[in-house]
Amino acid sequence: MEPAAAARGSGYTYEQYKETADWLLAHTHHRPSLAIICGSGLGGLADLLKDPVTFNYKDIPNFPQSTVAGHAGQLVFGTLAGVTCLVMNGRFHMYEGYPLWKVTFPVRIFCLLGAKSLIVTNAAGGLNPGYQVGDIMVIRDHINMPGMAGVNPLTGPNDERFGPRFPAMSDAYDEELRSLALAVGKELGFGASLHEGTYCTLGGPNYETVAECRFLHKLGADTVGMSTVPEVIVARHCGLRVFGFSLVTNKSVLEYGARERANHAEVLEAGRHAARKLERLVSVLVERMKGKGLV
């Protein structure tokens, strides 16, 4: 990265974003209208695509590399329920040492590829005592803890070609899509295992202390994780319609003396067990989105 780029607060120029998007468009016939970002252990969504075209991140110009177990590091184009999609199988995180302008690099690529909507998924800890491992939460809102400390992917000069200087976030998660997902979940018989709530992001990579979990729950957070929100901010800045799911893969520890301890291996295992349910929900949701002209 050039020193001038570091001073701007972003290591990528518009031309570099365009270079990556143009390279992808030249290497696949797919023109996605929907992008999906998969969280830890949730990459099975990519396996649902028909007529897939797969790119390893290392082969894509300017693309960062995923370093976390459970993130395959692949961009997969294809169709899902008749909708041309792009699935990001493996995301990037601040705790990997990446600045947020690099974490969110793919989202602006999605925009330049022509995507109009973004679905984000994550594996998260359940702060709400009513949530169980394997439950799914439709994200209604988020709490951006790094953002409150001034760590934001939009820091630096604004590029109006992507979006406005001061984007609103009060409607970050599309109300129509949330309602549609809850209705689909009810039809699929998910019942009490499907919720709607607030996701909180932290920097990681350590899991939260008991005091931190209590604090976040009192703030109104129902799930907690280390991703998603930076991507959502950049997506909304670009004008993408956004919808999100948290898959509860562990219960956050809210009591001292509890024997439970969160660890990444258990998160991945819980994700594998419950992922089929989330995949089914996303598949039917995309089909309904198409039927309603929402994608």
Rank of each mutant, 00 (worst) to 15 (best):
Y95M: 10
V53Q: 08
A115H: 03
P106Y: 13
G125A: 13
D51H: 13
P106E: 11
V76H: 12
H71P: 04
E96V: 13
A69W: 01
R91P: 10
L118D: 12
H71I: 09
G125P: 13
M94T: 03
R161P: 00
K102H: 11
P167M: 07
L86F: 05
A124P: 11
S66D: 06
G70P: 07
D159T: 01
N158G: 01
Y98W: 12
V151P: 03
T67Q: 11
H71V: 09
S170K: 05
L48M: 15
G78V: 12
T155A: 08
G125K: 11
H142V: 09
L113P: 10
A46N: 10
N56W: 02
V68K: 07
A115T: 15
V138D: 02
A149K: 11
L48I: 12
Q65Y: 02
V103P: 03
R161K: 13
F63D: 02
N128M: 11
V83T: 15
V76L: 12
V68Q: 06
A72W: 08
V76Y: 09
D47F: 09
D51Q: 14
V68E: 06
V138F: 02
F77S: 12
N62M: 11
V107K: 00
V68H: 07
Y95E: 11
F63A: 06
L112N: 05
N56S: 14
P52R: 08
N122K: 07
C85E: 01
D51G: 12
S117Y: 03
D141C: 10
T155I: 04
A123L: 03
H71A: 09
P129F: 07
K102Y: 06
Q132K: 15
M88A: 03
A72M: 13
D47R: 14
P106H: 13
I109C: 09
P157R: 01
A81G: 11
Y173D: 01
L154A: 00
G70Y: 08
R108C: 01
I119M: 11
D174L: 08
D159L: 10
N89F: 01
V138I: 15
L49R: 04
Y173V: 03
V83R: 03
L118G: 14
D47N: 14
L112T: 04
L127I: 12
N128A: 13
D141G: 06
T155E: 00
F92D: 07
Q74R: 15
A168K: 10
N122C: 15
S170W: 04
V107E: 00
S170L: 11
T67D: 07
A46F: 10
F166S: 00
I143K: 10
V87Q: 07
M148P: 01
P164R: 00
P64E: 04
N152V: 02
I119D: 10
S117M: 05
G134M: 03
M145A: 09
C85H: 02
T84E: 15
Y98N: 14
G97N: 12
N152Y: 05
P146D: 02
M137E: 07
L86R: 04
A46Y: 08
E160H: 06
I136S: 01
K116F: 08
S117T: 15
V120W: 00
G130K: 14
H142I: 10
F92C: 09
N122R: 08
H71N: 10
R108I: 01
G82W: 05
Q74A: 13
H142C: 13
T79P: 05
L49F: 08
